[in-house]
Amino acid sequence: MSASTSRSRVLPGFGLSLGCTLVYLSLLILLPLSGLAFKASHLSLAEFWAIASGERALASYRVTFGASLLAATANAFFGLIVAWILVRYSFPGKRAIDALVDLPFALPTAVAGITLATLYAGNGWIGRHLESLGVKVAFTPLGIVVALTFIGLPFVVRTLQPVIEDIEPEVEEAAASLGASRLQTFSRVLLPAIFPALVTGFTLALSRSIGEYGSVIFIAGNLPLISEITPLLIISKLEQYDVVGATALAMVMLMISFVMLLVVNGLQWWAASRHRGDGPSDGEVR
């Protein structure tokens, strides 16, 4: 159960693989990001602030981060159900559904955006019925949430599946035989085991959503102050050949995302340590 901390390694070559890792990460991540920071440093602090805190920029942060949070939350909930179904039950067509989950990974995002916009538009298969209920999806902020939910789902499901596979069904039976109600079994036995992976999946879906451009742009409507996402403002700056201004907005997004990831990781760490602290061996479920 406890992680093996054996000092002897089976495979040699720690130095080589560490070097490889560092070079790889520097080339792919560190270098481009420092290039970004360098470009943004051409701006004075006042200029940077003026770009970052403009009325439309602020509105776009609200849209981008709000929609991403909503989408990731929806995915955390429904993704858990999907993962659970796929691991715990066998039913006809299960393989097909399992493969379906990966589709948002594979589909070009523009295709996804155009398809969703067509489906949810006022005359689309889904939009037609929603519109008669007075709900407009395509070309409103709600449409952005739909697109982000679509692209975020596999992150949650694929993170949860191996973790759920690791929980033996016998654990649930044991809990039940020891007198735990269904709710108790879920909240006290299963959830603590799943929670870290759930948070990871949520975070992955969230970070993916924040940067998403290709699919959102076709369903958002792109009206200033209403349905403009921050990546669109960045593109808008690039259209004016204002690379420095674009990097300023990118830096703001990067910083907000970084803080959010930090908070989520902190939460995960806290949950993991709490779980370890009052493990089931103390006889919690009696």
């Binding site: 070309f139 742009i217 958002a220 792109n222 009206l223």
Partner: peptide, 10 residues
């Protein structure tokens, strides 16, 4: 304008 399309074809 109820929306601004992403491009001409859109």
């Amino acid at each position: 304008a109820p929306l601004f399309a992403a491009g001409g074809r859109d």
